[in-house]
Design a protein around this nucleic acid. Sequence first.
DNA 1: TGACAAATTAACCGCGAGGTACATAAATGC
DNA 2: GCATTTATGTACCTCGCGGTTAATTTGTCA
Lengths: 228, 228
Amino acid sequence: MGAGGDSAGTTRKTSWKKDPEAVQENILTIATEEFAAHGLAGANINVIAQRTSTSKRMIYYYFEGKEGLYMRVLERVYSSLRESEKALDVTSLDPVPALKRLTEATFDSHVNNPQFIRLVMIENIHNAEYVKKSNIIPRLNKAIIDKLTDVCRRGIADGVLRKDADPLELHWMTSSASFYNVSNRATFSASFGDSLYSEPGQRRIRQRVVDMVLGAVVIGYEPHQKSE
Amino acid sequence: MGAGGDSAGTTRKTSWKKDPEAVQENILTIATEEFAAHGLAGANINVIAQRTSTSKRMIYYYFEGKEGLYMRVLERVYSSLRESEKALDVTSLDPVPALKRLTEATFDSHVNNPQFIRLVMIENIHNAEYVKKSNIIPRLNKAIIDKLTDVCRRGIADGVLRKDADPLELHWMTSSASFYNVSNRATFSASFGDSLYSEPGQRRIRQRVVDMVLGAVVIGYEPHQKSE
DNA sequence: TGACAAATTAACCGCGAGGTACATAAATGC
DNA sequence: GCATTTATGTACCTCGCGGTTAATTTGTCA
């Protein structure tokens, strides 16, 4: 009993182009949406397949299963975000403006990449199992730390930053606020209303984050005062 | 073909006590662990049932399905955390020490309730669908805001806090750092090493969080200097 | 003590979702 | 132009998991 039921009315697609790159890209794009939306266990291979312009078979052909696909999705969105971070040049700015700029850029890039945030949340649910397995992800994170290291070095030398200013701690501080702002929006709004997520609310929060970070390392920093 | 296969060797448990409360508690405890560990889609009812001291049927008897169980789990951990927050009295402290105390308490309670954190993460993946459905959760969050409101009022009156100090923003700031500290530990460590999660690392971070929050609203606040 | 409700057990079920087998069309290269 | 490899489509299989059915015990109250 062969599988090929090509008797009678089966309209098998009878012509197609070979385009492996595009097929993989297409699968990854859809899969990113689905994994970001529903998580690893929650996402459905059949649904992903149906939404692509190809078939389920291709997912297994190129990515060998759900976990393989998930991992490639993860690596792809990490690369994309870190690549966009790399584009920002702050070597030409003085230390304090540079730090301000980096903080704002981090805040904005988190707001603009909700899929990245969601995938990282999901990955944390899985105790970073797949990030750890990846060979490429750890390497990607060097860039942002290098930038902060440069800023700290110059800032401390110039006497504008505290001597204990630490690049990793700075990255932790900017990331925590920026990440939480996106990751916990749903529960925070449900619990406390969405006033902080209105357009002016987000502007205020963004300013607060800058104030917090700069306030922690800039000598004699005066927080921005809300206009009233 | 009746279900009761009581012919021959079936060893049906022939004696048990009625104890509805304990049975539900037992189910909820195990379910909390499983949902926190694997998420809503990832958790397995059969596994939960097996780990309890009762049977799967009881889960459906008391909680009518996976989602019902999940929701009760969610409400239970929210209650427990908010209840423990309520215990902290800061009305007898001056505004600034009170704020410091509240920040530290928030930081600590997050560290000490990783299951709560994970369930909130999961809930955010689901866009807070179940938090919104719950009648009891929104009510719980009032307590912490009330405390901060009191602190702000007194602090502004005393002239030690900036006039634009805002309870909700303060809660956002303390929460963001405290939450991220636990929620993103796995990916952060995988990417940047676990130096911030060593015992002294955590002490430093905790101090930094206090500095950030107080630095943002306390007039003339001088951050704590790391001893070197 | 025996009807009745509440609590509990064990066995079963359907289907959905991850994964595979098989056939075959498109490119490649000699 | 024919053999081989690469890429693709269709049909299918299996079993895990959420949910259910039916029976049985425990307690309660006339």
